[in-house]
């Protein structure tokens, strides 16, 4: 029923396989006294199956860009077309539906609900799209299996390691089969080995065809993406293909296995 409220906009200027089409996007925050010009004309196309790393110094506009891409915010000027839908003109309710169905968020701080099992955390987006209980369970189970957490669905976040919590968050992002996976510093709170493990999942998902956009300020993490976009002063400074891409599956065996319990926990799970 919520689907019906998403306006069926005609296909606007989209080449085949174009997921994101952004043109001349500006974002101006009006703080009363002064106006902050966070984005100054950003144009970007992301095709289906791409893996883009967004980089840049703080204040460069990458957070604002991500908020707009994630439909948490609307551009002040310019257009943003997500899978053929012009979302720059949608109201709050429609934006919530877009976030629910077309975008999967992964945050730096995992942002799982405490005292709520992994399964229920993953089911959450389905609750807001009124999916029947049985199908909800099936979908959540499938998503958890996909990130390698089968058997841990009834654990609470406090009983899981950081890496496992982030996997729950990824499963939650995947459960409604979104158009894009949007990750904001997904490895910011993780040690280097776990970070590579998470990159492994991202690369696997990307191989399966999931378009991924990831904000990071670590160049070695950005190297797992296919394309890098660097923001500076509200504009795109550099947009290039990653020259020598790291492949997590190959990097993992070279890393020393971490001494902590995290490793043994992960070991049990395998």
């Amino acid at each position: 029923m919520a689907t019906a409220s998403i306006p069926a906009t005609p296909e606007v200027n989209t080449r085949r396989g174009n997921v994101i089409h952004m043109e001349g996007v500006h974002k101006i925050y009006d703080l009363g006294e002064q106006k902050v010009h966070a984005l100054r004309g950003v144009s970007l196309d992301v095709n289906k199956g791409e893996f883009v790393a967004i980089m840049g110094a703080s204040g460069g506009g990458k957070s604002t860009f991500m908020n707009i891409v994630g439909c948490l915010d609307r551009p002040s000027k310019g257009s943003y077309i997500l899978e053929g839908t012009d979302v720059s003109t949608l109201n709050k309710v429609d934006l919530a539906h877009i976030r629910n169905r077309r975008i999967g968020f992964v945050f730096q701080g995992f942002n799982l609900l405490a005292r709520t099992t992994a399964m229920e955390n993953v089911e959450l987006p389905c609750i807001y799209s009124a999916i029947p209980t049985k199908e909800r369970h099936e979908r959540a189970m499938r998503a958890l299996t996909r990130v390698g957490l089968k058997g841990r669905e009834h654990h609470f976040p406090s009983q899981l390691s950081g890496g496992q919590q982030q996997r729950v968050a990824i499963a939650r992002a995947l459960v409604n089969s979104p158009a894009i996976l949007l990750a904001d510093e997904p490895t910011g709170n993780l040690d280097s080995r776990t970070s590579v493990e998470i990159m492994d999942i991202f690369q696997d998902l990307n191989e399966e065809g999931i378009t991924t956009i990831m904000v990071t300020h670590e160049p070695d993490i950005a190297a797992y993406a296919k394309r890098t976009v660097i923001f500076k002063d509200g504009r795109i400074r550099l947009d290039q293909v990653v020259p020598s891409r790291s492949i997590a599956r190959e990097v993992l065996p070279t890393l020393p296995s971490v001494e902590s319990e995290l490793a043994s926990q992960d070991g049990e799970q395998e």
């Binding site: 948490l72 309710v93 539906h97 976030r99 629910n100 968020f105 942002n111 959450l124 987006p125 807001y128």
Partner: peptide, 16 residues
């Protein structure tokens, strides 16, 4: 507040 933010990010509307 944070929980509300998470819920909204994953698709909860104001009325939800």
């Amino acid at each position: 507040t944070r929980e509300i933010g998470i819920r909204m990010a994953i698709g909860a509307t104001e009325s939800d």
